[in-house]
Design a protein around this nucleic acid. Structure first.
Lengths: 107, 107
DNA sequence: CAAATCAATAACCCATTGGCTATTGATTAA
DNA sequence: TTAATCAATAGCCAATGGGTTATTGATTTG
């Protein structure tokens, strides 16, 4: 579906938002406050980004008292991997090793 | 490099532009005229999109008389695959089979 | 040479978006 | 219960970006 790819690419296109997502991927669940401390933008800006990420299915939120914990939903990246692989022309086998793939991708 | 990912995601985020790129991936080299015929937007718009794609290294152009032929540069997708794989947490082996990967990506 | 075609550029418009501050609602602490 | 903290929302503003038409430059064609 084009709409899905649209949303994924558009959501990840913003560097601040992508940085937040990367952080969640690498460090696991984080509160809004923790994310804000590193984001370099205001708390409302972070909340807005998290809202967009959530809309794209890239994160999940969990409320605990007055704080909200966010975590990455890696499964949402699948359409992105599929699309890239499809564009790269990997039709032949789902079990191609990556080295071979990279070789074919050089020009 | 963040700048590279930025450019790739931002370039591919627009549906019209991504459609042009997909077309070049699937059907190979095309003239601006041929791309315009299918794009649903004006020729200048297509030229602008091609300029952006070229700036991101995703396409190459070849001049032949008064027409310009564009083709996809699949190698430019490598950083995208790397990033996605990195976020998905595939560290262990470059030779992981994709089925296994997808299994781990379900949540 | 004159007319037509192809693609790029210029100049403009409007919608979207990412940022901010201020505020609100909810929860916890004093 | 009053004060403080956390996160979301509202409302605003400036920059960006994708679209348009008009034009230009270059190359073919008549």
């Amino acid at each position: 579906m084009t709409a899905t790819h649209d949303m994924l690419f558009r959501t990840l296109a913003d560097p601040t938002r992508r940085a937040i997502f990367e952080r969640l991927c690498r460090q696991g669940e984080q509160t809004v406050g923790a994310l804000t401390a590193e984001a370099g933008v205001s708390q409302p800006a972070v909340s807005k980004h998290l809202g967009v990420l959530k809309g794209a299915g890239l994160v999940r939120d969990r409320h605990e008292g007055r704080q909200t914990h966010y975590s990455a939903q890696l499964g949402a990246l699948a359409p992105l991997m599929d699309w890239t692989r499809e564009m790269a022309g990997v039709w032949e086998s789902r079990f191609d090793d990556l080295e071979n793939l990279l070789k074919r991708m050089d020009q």
